[in-house]
Simulated scan of single mutants.
Amino acid sequence: MAIEEGWHTVEDGRKLYTKTWKTEGPAKARLVFIHGFSDHCNTYNSFFPTLASKGIEVYTFDQRGWGRSVLKPSEKGHTGPTTRVLDDITSFLKTVIPCPIPLFLMGHSMGGGEVLCYAATGPAEIRKHIRGYLLESPFVDFSPDSKPSFVTVFFGRLAGKILPHRQLVNKLDVKLITRNPAVQKQFEEDDLCHDTGTLEGLAGMLDRTGDLCGGRVKIGEGAGEGGVTRIWIAHGDKDGITNYSASKALAGRIEAKDKEFKTYEGYFHRLHDEPPPENERFMNDVASWILARSVDPVKVDGGKAKL
């Protein structure tokens, strides 16, 4: 397996840190991955190497405001509004298309919410290259264990319009992220997981969840390659960060023949970082779903929805 690091410059001149996990032999598929809140692409431990070992190249980047894409403290959490977030995803996707092998787009947590919005509203000329979408614990709504009060949300959105670049620390409880003590320790000690958002960025994230949970984001049959939507959503029913039930309800509203909502009983938020062998089951499921759709699309378009 070869690992490559680099930088991608988006349209406004901002440089984003990138990392790629390539296969040893010819790749069967390519996956672009979008990370979550207070996260970066180097926290995914064995997940990306496992996919690469199974023939799936992984292309990812630290989103604006996160990880190594932050070059000074004032940039922490400075993601910009949703339009900027989705434009950054488009800009990165342009670096891997046209793709000689099937291309998939996946997001975790906040990144999962972004990918759902992208499947619904991303540029058609980009989405036509995407064979399928995968969501891991997508941020459709807060888990009851983490949900802020209505007053906090209301005044947060209001303040975001007045002081968009004001930074606010919103620390995640590592004990809700995973049952794996080693990963909990990893997050506690990682300075790049800074838990800092701007009011503008946090307001955008709240607006996205409101639209996703409220049914205003509509994903139909024509969201991907060949005018077909192929989508797989995975969620642990003990997730204390994002809302399992809201995620399942959203899956039920998606109008696609090839869709699946998969429940991981007893799993927490980072399915790929749960204690082994539970994490291995999830990683194998991701690879199997991708590889099953990395053949002639005609053979998979008739797949039955599984909910």
Rank of each mutant, 00 (worst) to 15 (best):
A124W: 08
S245W: 08
V58R: 02
D191A: 09
P164W: 04
I254H: 03
R68N: 10
L103T: 00
I3D: 02
I34V: 15
A182G: 09
S109C: 15
I56G: 03
G80W: 12
Q186N: 12
D191E: 15
H165N: 15
D273P: 03
D239Y: 13
F150D: 13
S109N: 14
K171L: 13
F104A: 02
I219V: 15
I177T: 06
M1I: 12
I3E: 06
G204V: 01
N170T: 08
E200L: 11
H129A: 06
I233H: 03
R208P: 04
K54D: 01
M1E: 13
G302V: 07
E188F: 05
L116G: 01
R293E: 12
I56H: 04
S109A: 14
G25Y: 06
R68V: 07
D88H: 02
V286T: 01
L134G: 06
V217P: 00
E255L: 13
V169S: 14
D273N: 06
P277T: 03
V169F: 11
P98I: 08
E278I: 00
F187V: 11
Q184P: 05
L271Q: 07
P123S: 07
T83D: 13
F187P: 05
R131W: 10
G6D: 14
S149P: 10
P181V: 14
T152H: 09
R270V: 01
N45A: 03
F104W: 04
T20H: 14
G224H: 00
P26S: 15
F155C: 01
D258W: 07
Y44K: 10
W66S: 06
M1V: 12
F261N: 00
G226I: 02
E280V: 15
T196E: 02
F261E: 03
G65I: 05
I34G: 00
M283L: 15
Y244F: 15
L202I: 15
F154I: 14
I130V: 14
D301M: 10
K54A: 04
D273Q: 01
V295A: 02
G122W: 04
E4H: 12
H108S: 11
A287C: 12
R30H: 08
S294Y: 12
S288N: 09
N180Y: 09
R179G: 00
D273I: 00
L103E: 06
D207T: 12
A251T: 08
S245E: 14
F37R: 06
I241N: 06
F92Y: 13
G122K: 04
K259L: 13
